[in-house]
Design a protein around this nucleic acid. Sequence first.
RNA 1: GCGAGCUUAGCUCAGUGGUAGAGCUCCACCUUGCCAAGGUGGAUGUCGAGGGUUCAAAUCCCUUAGCUCGCUCCA
Length: 536
Amino acid sequence: MDTKKEIKSNLEVISSLCKRRGFIFPSSELYGGINGFWDYGPMGSELKRNIRDAWWKFTVQGRTDVVGLDATIIMHPRIWEASGHASGFADPMVDCKDCKKRHRADQLCEEQGTKLIQDGKKWVLPEGTKCTQCGSKNLTEPRSFNLMFKTYVGPIEDDTSASFLRPETAQAIFAQFLNIESTSRKSVPFGVAQSGKSFRNEINPRNYTFRSREFEQMELEFFIRPDEAVELICGKVTTLADNPDLDGDPQPDWGWEVWHKYWVEQRLKWYRKVGLPADSLELYWQTKDELAHYARACVDIEYAFPFGVQELEGIAARSDFDLSQHQKFSGKSMDVMDDKLREAVMKLSDEEKAAFKAKVVAQWVEAGKDESAAAAFVDKLFEGRYIPHVIEPSAGTDRLALALICNAYDEEKLVDAKGKEDIRTVMHFHPSIAPVKVAVLPLVKNRPELYEKARRIFKDLQQEFNCFWDETGAIGRRYRRQDEIGTPFCVTVDFDTLGEGDASLKDTVTVRMRDSMEQVRMPVAELESFVRKSMK
RNA sequence: GCGAGCUUAGCUCAGUGGUAGAGCUCCACCUUGCCAAGGUGGAUGUCGAGGGUUCAAAUCCCUUAGCUCGCUCCA
């Protein structure tokens, strides 16, 4: 156990295997590499594709209330103004030239009771600002660190043509919300999922592929009714205090809190499905202080990487912030018309409406919100309209790939019949995400009829699964090669397969299991369903 | 971005100014009746890149890129 932990803590061993076996290479290594960029080799690209596919199947195709989107990486620059990335991504920083400590300029000023001065596009420190660490006034100018990659659309490079590579996939979903809502025949509550590349010009990429500058995300924006609409429709709002059944189908009376918890549970279920054991994951509920101002709750799903416990996914309840921002910046209404809400409202008397409105306005005012905004919101509800709220499970594909690699990696000490010790390196991937599902191995290669038989079995299985053909080296060595890339099954075609010796074994093969190293005899005809079953 | 350490074959690494190496891997053939270690042969390097010092540089100096760690950052 201890040795296993020790082995697992060695990221170098893992990255070396990843290179040796074609999972992950440094990008542009031919030219010395480029900081913060990584390539996925033959095995890694299969692994990542399997992760993406498993997510898509679980999140989109396996449900009736989520649809997909595949949007562009470069979008209208106004999107990033609406989302807050254009300003929030560019914190001005200052370095102390004496003690080398770096500060956020705005925080430094705040600590000293002053305010950072904005002079056009430039930031200026007030006179007399000191380094809080060493007291020196020898500080650099505030410099903006814009984390978005800038580019120019069209041939002319000026401010009017500047745009950005998306720093997250989510915004495209909000920007296309109206199109999707009006064409997909879905109505709230429903979700839109997207996976794809995002780019962040990280100041300091670290920890292998964990924080890179080009990365992939799998994001779901799940749109729900505001709790006030749920109350009008169902007469009540179910909260976590009601102990709802989160395993069953979603219910119309669920409030945002329940939806949020539901998605946390769904995501955990999925992580287990792709082979991350429940006890390898930790939930971190952000405290009120840590939450962004618009967020109501945010949970991080964390994995114990060799370099520390780090976030794989964040699941945020973001209220109606995103769609409201786009409504504000685009001038287009993000309201949806909810027929169920309208029907419910039509049954209400004027007195009931007035009472409801008074109650909601009082709640909003108590929460420190604007009274007239509350009144306008309720008036909209009475028309059957609202801006949907959103629950956002946002996962990092590359981070998960790394977590699955770390989790799968194992070195087993074996002792053979002669008492000789041997280390077996094996990747215990779940069959559904393993890059190769089956390796087909002819026991010997100098017997044409055996070789041909194996070749036919390989070609058949290849129609269904990613398979590997290996005819070189001793059979044991071939098994071990497959162990290192995590192939769950090796199919060995031997003389019994040909019906030599025991005729009852004709057309059966040896299936060698990766994890247990056990071998079972199986008819060739059953291979396909056997492998398929294991991937469930 | 700052500081420290590092970069030699596919991988792990040895090599402190004088002919670039080892183990594993990989490839071919032989052998091989089920868990890497048999036999024979073979391949692979502008010693991260560029510049300098020197008769001579993997080795010393400068610049640069990348990696690791620590700061910083992580909307």
